[in-house]
């Protein structure tokens, strides 16, 4: 059931929603890449990402941000897709490290993907091999800016172009035995 609001009140609600989303990012760190080692210092006392409302989430259902820390092999990509589809809207993805951008040092590997945004939509990339915690926090602040502008539309893009994403995913995952999640 769609509830119709008048434009002004909708605007105010949206502003509050965006402010809350921006200041409360619960992170699901997918830590199979080398970058997982940069996440603990980001969260703990030296760099303390909780200052910005960034907090770890225990399960995909509770998370807002999927942090892909480094390279993904075909096997882990399958799990990432499953995790991403279990997350609830609005959801964002941060690609972390060179490997998610262009393959990094695994550019000629037979088993790692080179371009993360062909398989799941990425809102913010953090480059570096590995990015230091300062860079990670600056990436999160960039994501906050994108959310405040209302441009973090990765999940919507994924839903609209699902066939294209599915074709790319099934090009490398041959044995597609995953359930369909009803978002």
């Amino acid at each position: 059931m769609e509830v119709s609001y008048d434009k002004e009140s909708r605007k105010i609600v949206q502003a509050i929603e965006r402010f809350a989303r921006k200041h409360s990012l619960w992170v699901l760190a997918y830590g199979t890449g080398c970058g997982a080692i940069e996440v603990p210092p980001t969260m703990t006392s030296r760099y303390d990402a909780e200052r910005f409302g960034i907090r770890g989430a225990a399960t995909p259902r509770q998370a807002d941000v999927l942090l892909i820390t480094g390279y993904l092999s075909v096997k882990t990509l399958k799990r990432v897709i499953r995790t991403y589809e279990q997350m609830q809207d609005p959801k964002y993805v941060i690609g972390f490290g060179s490997c998610t951008i262009n393959g990094g040092m695994y550019w000629d590997s037979y088993n790692t993907i080179k371009l993360l945004d062909m398989y799941i939509p990425v809102d913010v990339y953090i480059n570096g091999c590995m990015p230091r915690p300062e860079a990670v926090i600056s990436g999160f602040i960039e994501l906050q800016k994108v959310i405040a502008e209302g441009k973090a539309e990765g999940a919507r893009k994924y839903k609209e172009n699902l066939d294209w994403y599915r074709a790319n995913q099934q090009k490398i995952i041959h044995n597609w035995n995953m359930p369909d999640y009803n978002w």
Binding site: V74, K78, W107, D108, Y110, N111, K114, L115, N168, H174
Partner: peptide, 29 residues
């Protein structure tokens, strides 16, 4: 074990062309 649903020759054999396979299978920036 590590590779799922691998088809074709095993990747560590020397007649397996890694660069060619990677270029054909994955998207490149």
């Amino acid at each position: 074990f590590i590779l799922e649903d691998w088809e074709g020759i095993p990747p560590m054999r020397r007649d397996f062309d890694t660069v060619k396979y990677a270029k054909e299978t994955y998207f490149n920036r």
